[in-house]
């Protein structure tokens, strides 16, 4: 049982839903990310997702694309992000998952990446362009180090595929709320509740919903039928907006607090 699993069993015991906060590591700087992790935990984030930037973020909308390019331009690398996690582990035990694309992990070496991420204090990996059928090697390495590999479900996922994905999932399952890329949207699609409920009925792994969620009312609506709610672009935008401010951490934490406190 890693920190992600422990967190969900704690929440379940309290009959609570998880608030999962995403930010791109290294935007506006690695030091800023390091300060934000414990601050967002205090603001109510149950799990932190750190984006490891990639040059070709094809599943991301403009907000996270831009954050990725800013971070890369500042020289962020996977090694530096692992170092950041190692530092952050001295002050917090909040579950941390890295979210990236497959190529940086593949290039690093899957087994080596898992080993070093575990040693740094990472609990799981989220890779949107890695389907279960290509993830054999990564899953073996993950199992060896008690790391979670988070897989995705989408509104277009057929029931047949859903069963296979849920069987492979660990930590939690990432249910994409809409067909599309990451980025804030106004409304929550109608059919989502039914699909998420179906997935939850088929697995013991928590099912969390992300993509397009940016307001407290959306967070509340989704928490009615999901095990957790993931907010990414809205937080990244808030970081971007306040990047120059001395009290950036405080402001972003206040924003997250507004979202998490409805749970």
């Amino acid at each position: 049982m890693n920190r992600i699993d422990r967190k969900f069993s704690e929440l379940r015991a309290k009959n609570k839903k998880a608030f999962i906060a995403f930010m791109t590591a290294g935007d506006p700087s690695l030091a800023a990310t390091e300060a934000l992790v414990p601050a967002l935990e205090r603001a109510g984030a149950d799990i932190i997702e750190l984006g490891v930037p990639f040059s070709d973020p094809m599943a991301d909308g403009r907000t996270i694309q831009d954050a990725s390019f800013r971070s890369l331009a500042r020289g962020t690398t996977p090694v530096k992000i692992l170092e950041l996690v190692r530092h952050v582990r001295k002050v917090t035990d909040v579950p941390i998952a890295l979210m990236t694309y497959y190529n940086p992990v593949f290039r690093f070496g899957e087994a080596r990446f898992m080993a070093e991420a575990k040693a740094a204090g990472v609990d799981g990996l989220i890779i949107p362009d890695l389907p279960v059928v290509e993830a054999g090697c990564l899953r073996r390495a993950a199992a060896e180090h008690d790391m979670s590999v988070v897989f995705f479900l989408a509104p277009t996922t057929t029931q047949g595929r859903m069963a296979g994905i849920l069987k492979a999932a660990s930590g939690f399952v990432y249910f994409v709320s809409v067909a599309g890329v990451t980025g804030a949207r106004v409304s929550v699609p109608n059919d989502l509740a039914r699909q998420v409920k179906m997935a939850r009925s088929m697995t013991r792994v928590p099912v969390c919903v992300g993509f397009g969620i940016s307001t407290p009312s959306q967070v509340r609506d989704i928490s009615l039928f999901a095990d957790g709610v993931i907010v990414g672009s809205a937080i990244v935008k808030e970081i971007e907006k306040n990047a120059g401010a001395k009290d950036m951490t405080v402001r972003v934490a206040a924003f997250v607090k507004k979202l998490s406190s409805v749970l």
């Binding site: 362009d129 897989f151 479900l153 989408a154 277009t156 994409v176």
Partner: peptide, 21 residues
Amino acid sequence: VNGHFGEFGGRYVPETLMALL
């Protein structure tokens, strides 16, 4: 069957596209 040419090929795409592929 999964689109591999030896170790190359495959389908490395977001889940949303898998059913369509």
